[in-house]
């Protein structure tokens, strides 16, 4: 395994009475593709959210590049999400009011980049993901596959070190799912970004270097034999 970039150790998180994570641990190396698998309700999404710093675990630590996320301020964690992390979720991550181009440019603009430069960069990424035709359309006006490619473009536009993908092909047919996964993996490899990929589909998990199996809130790491 490569040098760990992101380490989650002994993570615990409960929602109401039920424990979503019960001492789960996992590591992600730079440029590594890790699939998080498990049955529904096992806690795999919660593990991803904790690793990305968008949900705070009740106990345990998440360390990214030597920085413990739980000790960081909201502002710093947000900046981390904006600059170091990228996200591709199944639904809802695109802002419906903005065009696809504006959606991709959004993280750059939130970081203070001028509109012109942000959109120039966004247009370039839309082209790389073969959805430049959707630039001026709103998310509601493009197909599901195009929408996910836009989401991938947005996840990659800031040059992140880690991409968190939660069921990125869950709402797509197999052909579109295949294309999106291929683009995501290829582009991430090209840029050297690691991917944490939550999925319950073995076909999607097959793109990963390593699998983490989550069951009842506990994670078990499985090395893939390619």
């Amino acid at each position: 395994m490569t040098e760990p970039l992101l380490v989650g150790a002994d993570l615990r998180k409960t929602y109401g009475q039920s424990a979503a994570l019960d001492g789960a641990s996992m590591t992600v190396g730079a440029g590594e593709i890790v699939a998080v698998m498990g049955p529904s309700g096992s806690g795999k999404s919660t593990l991803l959210h904790c690793m990305a710093g968008i949900v705070a675990p009740e106990s345990g630590t998440v360390v990214y590049n030597g920085q413990t996320l739980s000790t960081m301020s909201d502002k710093d964690r947000s900046a981390l999400r904006r600059t170091e992390f990228g996200f591709v979720f199944q639904f809802g991550q695109l802002v419906p009011e903005l065009t696809c181009l504006e959606n991709v440019a959004l993280p750059l603009r939130l970081g203070g980049l001028s509109r012109g430069k942000a959109e120039e960069s966004a247009r370039e990424w839309l082209g790389r993901l073969e959805v430049d035709g959707a630039a001026d359309k709103r998310p509601g006006e493009v197909s599901g596959g195009q929408g996910q490619r836009v989401a991938v473009a947005r996840a990659l536009v800031t040059g992140p070190k880690v991409i968190f993908a939660d069921e990125p092909t869950g709402a797509l047919d197999s052909l579109n799912g295949e294309q999106v996964m291929r683009l995501l993996i290829d582009t991430a490899k090209e840029t050297g970004a690691a991917i944490v990929l939550v999925t319950h589909e073995p076909r999607v998990a097959a793109y990963s270097d390593r699998e983490v199996i989550v069951r009842d809130g506990r994670a078990r790491q499985v090395e893939m034999v390619q």
Partner: peptide, 16 residues
């Protein structure tokens, strides 16, 4: 709320 959540996801802090 949904819109603002999406913004948070891509790195907007609470003040933003």
């Amino acid at each position: 709320d949904r819109r603002l959540s999406a913004l948070r996801l891509v790195g907007a802090d609470s003040a933003q």
